[in-house]
Design a binder for these strands. Structure first.
Lengths: 147, 147
DNA sequence: TACGAAGTGGGAAATTGTGGGAAATAATAA
DNA sequence: TTATTATTTCCCACAATTTCCCACTTCGTA
């Protein structure tokens, strides 16, 4: 399971090294997509298959005939990237995704069960501050939601 | 799988290079057709076979009136072109398709699972802005679905 | 202290995207 | 028809980026 928070560097070549604790579970290739709240999601290939299958509702070969499917798929697939993990555990963040979260210098890499999130460090810090305050209510709410 | 977004140039000879990540999957020939929503669709030959079979299938569950179906098929088939990929990965956009999406200068090349879309860069940007508004709900759904 | 693992940086080589010229083909005019 | 011009195809060249590899540094541990 992917858990924990790490602060790493994104260098001038857009490389970020994955925390060593994550590497085994990640495998050789991962999928990176825009996520919620100014971050990026990283999925293992296995997880991605699950998620995309569930969400894209593999209707038929002609899903492009439906307007809502088109816009959904454009968002889902058009803005994702398949990325290899290099020999020493680093990934390359595509430009269009890097810009999206304004990643410069340091980024937060956060394991959340089956996925990883990448944040601009500052954004992550302020997000945490807010979340911290709401943690109790949030936990309460989540507790209720699971039943 | 064809995923991700790339911004390339369409030159004075109407040439556009396919992102190298797509080349293997595309093979040597592709089909390019007018697409829906101000873009062009590119299919692999394999995918095109599937699509065209489904479109021409008289028993298909498409809820088209006959007249609608005829005109849609004219649109899809009548204006499709088989295009070769040259030795360094470029394709030639036929004039009538180029004009259709008003491609000048820079174009967006977007991988969407089994097809590629080509957009005028500006049009793509504004399309994305709109989609962005729905992004949070979408990501929310994504997050929840990953358990 | 020595060692190995992890994170970071950078140089060299290979690849990719782009532009442009020459050859081949098509179109037009004389 | 031939001569001339335009268009398309093919090939090469360049620059920028990406990829690959090696090395340094830091940190924890034996």
């Amino acid at each position: 399971m992917l858990i924990g928070e790490y602060i790493h560097t994104i260098d001038e070549k857009n490389r970020v090294s994955m925390p060593s604790k994550f590497r085994k579970e990640l495998g050789k290739k991962i999928i990176i997509t825009p996520g919620l709240d100014q971050c990026l999601f990283i999925f293992t290939m296995k997880e991605w298959t699950k998620v995309s299958k569930r969400l894209s509702d593999s209707d038929s070969d002609l899903s492009f005939l439906k307007a809502d499917k088109r816009s959904f798929n454009r968002f889902m697939f058009g803005r994702a990237a398949e990325v290899e993990i290099d020999s020493i555990g680093r990934i390359l963040i595509p430009d269009f995704l890097k810009e999206r979260i304004k990643a410069v210098g340091r980024v937060a890499i956060v394991g959340i069960q089956d996925r990883i999130e990448i944040w601009n460090e500052k954004t992550w810090e302020s997000y945490k501050e807010v979340a911290e305050k709401q943690a109790d209510e949030l936990a309460e709410k989540l507790g209720n939601d699971t039943k």
